[in-house]
């Protein structure tokens, strides 16, 4: 059973592991470039564990910047994690094994992956969630190692590697669309997302669009849920 759960977790987590591995290699390379040593880079991986914020961190570590700005940037960039927790409160509530780890490791991609897959009933969901979360984290850590090593060996130019994140989300979206029987809330959210993309400055995009989407979902509850009865 243990081995089956592990095999299942690896199979499901593979897309995220691949994406994380590629992008964290870039993270390692940029860290080396910025004079951030491997220890500090891995410290960031194991405490912050948030791609966007970590890349920003690499920029900021060598710049004289106020702690208040760091706080504000961290808050705005990562406020979306509040919504992930909101969506997973019930899912994680019965967990008794290292629940804190599952919550800590809830990144964008881990969240997207976990909301797409349907864990077979015979598996212990707690264990599978922890395994998948751990596998993703491991890939991120491993890629950083490789990136730093590669940076020492090769003169490597990695512009464009972060596209892997976009590719990952395309794959996850296709999976989500395949899984869903109701579309009205996806279409509505997509509309909001695109309108915001053209009107809201990037720094506030996530916060504003997630708030608007939440308002839309709550206000339109009768229509959205009604569609599926």
């Amino acid at each position: 059973m243990q081995r089956e759960m592990l095999r299942y977790s690896v199979k499901q987590a593979l897309p995220v592991m691949a994406g994380y591995f590629l992008v964290s290699i870039a993270f390692g390379l940029v860290a080396l470039d910025q004079g951030v040593n491997l220890f500090v880079a891995q410290l960031m991986n194991l405490t912050i564990y948030s791609g966007t914020l970590e890349f920003i961190g690499l920029d900021v570590l060598n710049t004289p910047v106020s702690y208040l700005s760091v706080f504000m940037v961290a808050l705005f960039v990562n406020v979306r994690h509040l919504f992930y927790g909101l969506a997973f409160v019930d899912k994680y509530k019965p967990f008794r094994k290292m629940r804190w780890f599952a919550i800590f490791a809830l990144t964008d991609e881990t969240f997207s992956l976990l909301s797409t897959i349907t864990i077979p009933k015979q598996f212990d969901e707690n264990t599978v969630v922890n395994l998948i979360s751990a596998l993703n984290l491991l890939s991120w850590v491993a890629g950083t190692f490789i990136g730093v090593i590669l940076g020492y060996i090769l003169p490597f130019e990695t512009t464009g590697v972060s596209f892997a994140m976009i590719a990952l989300f395309v794959v996850l979206t296709i999976d989500q669309v395949k899984k869903n029987t109701r579309y009205i809330h996806i279409v509505g959210s997509a509309l909001i997302a695109v309108i915001c993309a053209f009107s809201i400055p990037k720094d506030y995009y996530l916060l504003v669009s997630l708030l608007l989407v939440s308002v839309f979902l709550i206000a339109g509850r009768r229509w959205i849920e009604g569609e599926n009865r």
Binding site: A87, D108, T116, F169, Q176, N180, S189, L210, V213
Partner: peptide, 10 residues
């Protein structure tokens, strides 16, 4: 929320 968030993230 999950599917809506994924769309926003994309």
């Amino acid at each position: 929320l999950p599917s809506a968030i994924v769309v926003v993230l994309v």
